[in-house]
């Protein structure tokens, strides 16, 4: 009787299943995006079909500063809306940091005297132009010249 019991013992081959699971893990490890912290979900971007995708968002040679601006025109920092004077302080601090980094690295500003950092503007579609313009002017006053206006790619 004991011998007949061992004959019916099921031992499924788990190795192929493990292979598939490891492949799935590899896939998710490669596509996982931990660097999306700069992208505030509260900002609803407009849609523009001719907005070009970023060449290489992970390119370390291109310095980017992402500014999220909510529908009331306030700068969002870690999800918190900043009053205007604090937003200006943040921009100045960032500009000082870029200038210091350039000095340490022996780099020079661009031909027009602007800083090489690209200001990535993620502005809510319901924000007024006035708020956006005041932010742009504040950036320009601190030496930033390059701007990237974000929009969702797709049919508008």
């Amino acid at each position: 009787m004991a011998a007949s019991k061992t004959e019916f013992k099921a031992e499924p081959n788990l190795t192929p299943l493990l292979d598939v699971v490891f492949q799935l893990i590899t896939f998710f490890m490669l596509v996982i995006n931990f660097s999306s912290d700069n992208y505030d979900k509260n900002v609803k971007l407009p849609v523009a079909d001719s907005a070009r995708p970023i060449d290489d968002p992970t390119d370390a040679r291109v310095d980017r500063l992402v500014l999220n601006i909510d529908r009331d025109g306030r700068l969002l920092e870690a999800g918190e809306a900043q009053p205007l004077h604090k937003a200006m302080q943040t921009l100045k601090r960032q500009a000082d940091f870029v200038k210091f980094s350039l000095k340490v690295a022996g780099g020079k500003p661009d031909a027009g005297g602007g800083l090489p950092t690209i200001i990535v503007l993620r502005v809510d579609r319901d924000a007024d132009f006035q708020a956006l313009n005041s932010m742009i002017k504040a950036c320009q006053a601190n030496g930033f010249r390059k701007f990237a206006f974000k929009a969702m790619s797709g049919p508008s």
Binding site: G112, F147, F149, S153
Partner: peptide, 22 residues
């Protein structure tokens, strides 16, 4: 696998308009 599936968030398809504003 469960961890990666739960933490996976599809990256939004964002484009941009690059401008030099003086």
């Amino acid at each position: 696998l469960t961890f990666f599936v739960l933490t996976y968030r599809a990256a939004p398809i964002e484009g941009q308009f690059l401008m030099n504003l003086l």
